[in-house]
């Protein structure tokens, strides 16, 4: 269960369905705040003092080289890993995620690279897998098909020929779209996508990038992990650069350029931006560029 430390008597279970815990004022602040998150695996320090705000309605891109800790961070938010230190704050309330189910109940959906779709099932069956609607013990196909259709329409996914098509017959981009639609349909407020364009061709990438943008415009908070800086700059409203488990730069995407991001990704610092408009996280670890050595 999601631990809710506000102690105001609000039922934590309601957090899954309703956007805000009753009794607390909906804040205009970020949907999710990471406060000084660290995670270690034995002697290996995977994440150190991560402070990051994830606002609603914006795409936050998480970039970094291999082993920088992107996946570890996403898994901490998805409830797969439990951080060793620090605090996750959801809508202003500190929460602890003990399992992926806790995260899902809260409204956090993750679309992993392998998409986790059943090729032999059709789009509707995949989108509602585990959340089937039944009537008198029998599946209510009409209700499920209408739900799936509405979600796809909301996301403007229009290239599928029939939503009764097996997912195995779809193209890579369409599969990604189905996986995203599946996540969104379950009342997700925060959608995390792991390398959504990694295996896609040009037109399929367009499809997925358009989808990511629309997700954010619809009021979801979106986190995208990507290696592809071109794609990142096309969709991201905010960037967060990880280097060796530390957050070395965050800020609006407009304040970065590809070269500075590459510098941050590979060296943890960038000489090109000296004006301090980017927030250099200094929260607890007090790291500076020198501490990376």
């Amino acid at each position: 269960m999601v631990a809710n430390s506000t102690g105001d008597g609000a039922a934590p279970a309601a957090a899954g369905a309703a956007p805000f815990v009753p009794g607390t004022t909906p804040t205009d602040g970020p949907l999710l705040q990471l406060r000084d998150i660290s995670k270690s695996f034995g002697p290996v320090q995977a994440l150190t003092g991560i402070d990051l705000d994830i606002p609603v309605g914006e795409v936050t891109a998480l970039v970094g080289d291999n082993g920088a800790g992107k996946s570890t961070l996403v898994k901490c938010i998805a409830g797969i890993y439990q951080p060793n230190g620090g605090q996750l704050v959801w809508n202003g309330n500190p929460v602890q995620l003990h399992s992926p189910k806790d995260a899902a109940d809260l409204g956090i959906a993750t679309v992993y690279q392998d998409l986790a779709l059943c090729d032999n099932l059709d789009i509707v069956q995949n989108m509602l897998l585990g959340h089937e609607v039944t009537r008198l013990g029998l599946l209510n196909e009409i209700s499920m098909e209408l739900t799936a259709k509405q979600t796809l329409r909301d996301l403007s996914v229009t290239t599928v020929r029939s939503i009764r098509q097996p997912v195995g017959s779809l193209s890579g981009g369409q599969r990604q779209a189905v996986a995203v639609a599946k996540a969104v349909m379950l009342d997700a407020q925060l959608v995390m996508l792991d390398e959504p364009t990694a295996a896609l061709g040009v037109s399929q990438t367009e499809l997925v990038l358009g989808l990511i943008t629309r997700l954010a415009r619809r009021g979801h908070a979106v986190i995208v992990i990507s290696h592809n800086l071109t794609d990142v700059f096309r969709v991201a409203d905010r960037l967060a650069v990880l280097y060796l488990g530390r957050l070395v730069a965050t800020g609006p995407a407009a304040e970065f350029d590809p070269q500075s991001v590459v510098d941050y990704m590979t060296t943890g610092t960038s000489g090109r931006l000296g004006n301090g408009s980017l927030s250099q996280p200094t929260a607890s670890s007090g790291f500076g560029t020198g501490s990376e050595g």
Binding site: R153, S156, T158, T159, V160, I163, S203, E206, G210
Partner: peptide
């Protein structure tokens, strides 16, 4: 049979399926 396209046909998604060779 198709999920009807209600958005403008120039949205990137609709374009993606609009008959390029790929």
């Amino acid at each position: 049979h198709d999920v009807p396209a209600e958005e403008s046909p120039s949205s990137p998604v609709a374009v993606a399926g609009a008959g390029e060779s790929a």
